[in-house]
């Protein structure tokens, strides 16, 4: 078990600067999620921690020691790859024993650890099968099992669920959360899926273009996004962005901070009113059962569409007119550079 620290970490590929100076302190036992759009440098950052990429600038420390030039096997990490990277010519048991065998662990000990891991991951019936004969979810569990048996200080996951179908993804997400609760080991988890980030993380690191957009707990990011990028990225549905004029109509009695360029309101923080507010026509209704999403085209040209989330009945159908207001306790104001401004009415 170990703390992990990044100081001004940079990575360049040729002339391309992919990671632009990242500082991060990870406490022992934390579950950290790197989230961001595809190509923002998540995998590169993870691979630098793993020792699979050279660090171009700054330092990577694990357990208080600078690890920049330490080869991967000596960093006390285990990595789960997106493609699982199982050895196709070895059985499940051999896949899980391989690393221990290399470190000259006694046979009995290997057997014991593999059996324990197989128990945790419900892989006992498959130990003698080849990875080829397993389903995607089972392969995923073998890849995790291979990491567990090595009893690493830090687990690294690179988009481990992205090859699974939606149902299995939800299920495996819970299994990973359970695993973290059980082992208490530091975990760093890369994903482009904000749902995985929100549900798994102790703290989320939102990356954008090789830089940290914000670091915080899931609720901090949801409630107080530091900028428009984080506001738009985190949350079940994409946040609505309104112009100050639209905001003035949606929030008649609320003064916005000076310099407000856009106002963010989440779909769940809009309210239907009988008159006034912002006005538009419902284009599409997505019915989810416990709630519905109404996609609305507003009158006027600027930022013409918003999404409204409601569990009420009788909101309207496609083609109906609708009036909306925003809940002043849950609005976000951003300046011209996209940075968040403090809003006095917000909780």
């Amino acid at each position: 078990m170990a703390d992990l620290a990044l100081h001004s970490v940079e990575k360049t590929f040729g002339a391309l600067k992919v990671i632009k100076g990242i500082d991060l302190d990870i406490r022992n036992g934390e579950f950290i999620v790197f989230v961001g759009p595809s190509g923002c440098g998540k995998s590169t950052l993870l691979r630098m921690i793993a020792g699979l990429e050279n660090v171009s600038g700054g330092t990577v420390e694990i357990g208080g020691k600078v690890m920049n030039n330490t080869p991967a096997p000596q960093r006390g990490i285990a990595m789960v790859f997106q493609s699982y990277a199982l050895y196709p010519h070895m059985s499940v048991r051999e896949n899980m024993s391989f690393g221990l065998e290399l470190s000259k662990t006694p046979k009995a000990k290997i057997q014991e650890r593999v059996d324990i891991a197989a128990g945790i991951l419900q892989l006992e019936p498959y130990l003698d099968r080849s990875p080829r004969e397993l389903s995607g979810g089972q392969r995923q569990r073998v890849a995790i099992g291979r990491a567990i048996v090595r009893e690493p200080e830090v687990f690294l996951f690179d988009e481990p669920l992205s090859n699974l179908d939606a149902a299995l993804r939800g299920q495996t997400r819970v299994e990973i959360a359970r695993l973290h609760a059980r082992l208490g080991t530091t975990m760093i988890y890369v994903t482009h899926d904000q749902v995985e980030a929100m549900t798994l993380a102790d703290r989320i690191v939102v990356l954008n273009g090789g830089e940290v957009a914000q670091i915080g707990t899931p609720l901090e990011l949801y409630r107080n996004p530091a900028n428009a990028f984080v506001a738009g990225f985190i949350g079940g549905q994409q946040m609505n962005f309104l112009t100050p004029e639209q905001a003035a109509r949606a929030l008649p009695d609320t003064a916005l901070p000076d310099g407000t360029e856009t106002v963010g309101v989440r779909p769940e923080h809009l309210q239907q009113v009988t008159g006034g507010g912002i006005e538009g026509t419902i284009d599409v209704v997505e019915e989810f059962g416990e709630y519905a999403l109404y996609h609305i085209t507003l009158d006027g040209d600027a930022l013409p569409s918003v999404t409204f989330k409601s569990s009420a009945t009788g909101v309207g159908a496609m083609g109906d007119r609708i009036h909306l207001r925003a809940d002043p306790q849950h609005i976000h104001a951003f300046d011209a550079g996209g940075l968040a401004l403090s809003v006095p009415t917000r909780h």
Binding site: G51, L52, A72, P73, A85, L102, R146
Partner: peptide, 14 residues
């Protein structure tokens, strides 16, 4: 042979 397999083996100490 996917290079990830070699990376996985490398991380495991091969």
């Amino acid at each position: 042979v996917p290079v990830e397999l070699e990376e996985a083996a490398h991380v495991e100490g091969a």
